[in-house]
Design a protein around this nucleic acid. Structure first.
Lengths: 380, 380
DNA sequence: CGACGCTAGTTATACGTAAAACCGGGATAG
DNA sequence: CTATCCCGGTTTTACGTATAACTAGCGTCG
């Protein structure tokens, strides 16, 4: 029974089910579906049917149970490489994130993994290598190992490889008019920045500095634009300075120092693109002898754990990272199942904490009511 | 020429190289090595030899170039699932980390990825799911998709699955007398904690509190033991309180509050198992009106970016995360190549910053010279 | 009573690659 | 002059799985 099709020798002889351990380190050879079939006295096809769960009406219950028992006995695990080859798909998605340290993406992963698990999909993570990483080839031939990709727009350097892979691509927080993505999940970043700005405007601030991430990504372009729009809507308000900074505390500190000591009226509020930068900005203010928030307000973005680690705690915009990851994975699973992809926008929420306060006009004379008073009003 | 072995119909006919697009979303079918062979006028085996780089002395240069040209033309990428099945290995390693947010593991990944790239090995990341995650099955059948695993001892809940996978396992920062790991990479945690303690002892501190991570992991057990050993070596010194805390700023804050306000002599130094806890401890001290480091010293562990985000900046122990990841990957690659595995210990380094200072005995009377004076000396 | 359908399987095949085994012909050594 | 070796390939096979196609036996219905 089913003893043909094998070269011979290695097969029917007793005296050792695992004739040769081919592995380099003495690892036991895994049982295959054929081994299970032999042990259960059925054909390999039957094993495949039973293990695949498609045996209803095809295999009798006693036989199925015998197969399951044999599988258990031999500790059978289907060989994924073979299955992937046979099926031409893997039910595995790749999540591409810009940097592991970014807490936001940890949340994205969590949300994506949850939804993936609900649909029997696996997730592997690929942190975009810093600079021109050599580890790019996951994409080069990834097609056989992956069914789809979810990528953050911040992982810019990996995107060209992604495109070439020919895999369905869900973009997170990306330019909506990309044509190569099958779906896009966007955070309502513009609304978040608008809320921050209006919050500060309501506190009486009119003179702002923007501590901006120096990353060329859609999400940061949107922040800058939304800030400009919100400020423009209020007469007498202005962004008096924009200082770019790398995404570190030290860079945020230096940028804020520049913003606070440069020529022209000193801004009363520092709007930062990220909590990391905001933490640096707070340090800079204190280093200059300015109290936060009494003399200068600072706002962050993202609501990382850092936001409550510093003192005072940061006023910031909470991004529901898990919702983003979940929506991304839902979109990808839909595409994988042949359904039309949907583009989602996830709302964000202003979190008011200790670094933003009312601006007391009397505290310090400055040119924040007259728009043209920028020159000649140096406070430095 | 090599036109047999195919069912028929789909094969030799002209009029469309991609007869049916089987993919659900209109994706172009990938060219296979057979397609390349046909285009180059050679056999599939020749294509495999050329693409595999093993053609020296087997294929003439003109033929090889023709194959390469055809491959380029058709945008050929080898099907990884087929290759994995054929070779029985994948040259892919899995890195299991406890949590994505932990910056330390981002460094571990970076180091591991660098070494992996040097050896043509890919790395995928698996963050151990929080709690009883459902996404565990990557290990269940991972054998066909992975060649080896590098796991942090903190990813405790995933370890049982890992063991079952039968894959070579390199443990990071784990109990050295594990028998199921082929290699272990340890940080000299004990030395780090010894350095911290001796630093504080040299500053005059004698009464310590240990803000301890509430995770049952080798690394934290070692920290507690090394702290106890170092303190015991100095007459008159004692750990007057040990407060466990989850790994969050808020939990660190509460634990430090308990440590500073409990009965008995108030400790003059808070030794924290992690920078996160140390940040919370600093907040607690300030909240109680105690200046850091003048009235209470605080030390962290790990040297995360958080350490320089807070003020004052944290005295802490720098863990060379990249070196750990690199050593782990080196050990795994060695095992994969059949070489004996080596166990490594990576040194750590004390970083003295702003949260540790000399203890001025006069600043505050307390029972830190007499060991038995714990009772009746409440400072509350 | 024969065709039919259902049950419970089996046999055969394909997925795409790597590599072992084979092979024709020219150069070369004995 | 012939046996051998090397060059430059080709043919063939196997990896382990999923599934389409087939089949033997049996009850059933027209």
């Amino acid at each position: 029974m089913a003893e043909d099709k094998r070269g011979g020798g290695d097969d029917g002889d007793a005296g050792g089910r695992w004739p040769t351990v081919r592995g380099r380190h003495a690892a036991a050879a895994r049982a295959t579906s054929r081994d299970v079939a032999r042990a259960a006295g059925v054909s390999q096809a039957t094993v495949s049917l039973v293990m695949g769960g498609k045996w209803r009406g095809r295999v009798s219950e006693p036989t199925a149970e015998a197969v399951r028992a044999a599988a258990r006995e031999l500790d059978y695990r289907p060989n994924l490489a073979a299955r992937n080859l046979r099926l031409g798909r893997t039910r595995t998605a790749l999540l591409v994130v810009p940097a592991l340290t970014n807490e936001f993406f940890a949340g994205v992963y969590t949300g994506a993994a949850r939804v993936a698990a609900e649909h029997g999909v696996g997730v592997v993570l690929y942190p975009s290598p810093e600079g021109t990483g050599p580890a790019r080839d996951p994409f080069a031939s990834a097609r056989a190992t992956l069914d789809g990709v979810i990528a953050s727009s911040m992982a810019a350097d990996a995107l060209s490889d992604l495109r070439e892979g020919g895999l369905p691509l869900v973009m997170l927080d990306s330019d909506p008019d990309r044509t190569d993505a099958v779906a896009t999940v966007n955070l309502d970043i513009a609304d978040g920045m608008r809320q921050v700005t209006e919050h500060l405007l309501a506190l009486g601030h009119r003179s702002f500095a923007h501590i901006a991430a120096d990353i060329d990504s859609w999400t940061f372009r949107v922040r800058a634009r939304a800030l400009a729009d919100a400020v423009r809507a209020t007469a007498g308000a202005a962004v008096v300075r924009t200082e770019p900074a790398a995404m570190t505390v030290a860079a945020g500190l230096r940028a804020a120092e520049r913003a606070l000591t440069g020529p022209g009226p000193r801004p009363t509020a520092l709007i930062c693109d990220d909590d990391i930068l905001a933490a640096g900005a707070c340090k800079a203010a204190r280093r200059l002898g300015l109290r936060v928030p009494e003399e200068v307000s600072v706002t962050g973005f993202d609501d990382l754990s850092l936001a409550t680690a510093v003192e005072p705690e940061l006023t910031t915009v909470r991004l529901p990272a898990e919702a983003v990851g979940a929506a991304g994975m839902r979109a990808l699973v839909a595409v994988l199942d042949g359904q039309p992809a949907t583009t989602t926008t996830v709302p964000v929420e202003l979190v008011t904490r200790g670094t933003s306060g009312p601006h007391d006009d009397a505290a310090r004379p400055g040119g924040q009511t007259r728009r043209g008073a920028r020159r000649e009003a140096s406070v430095g």
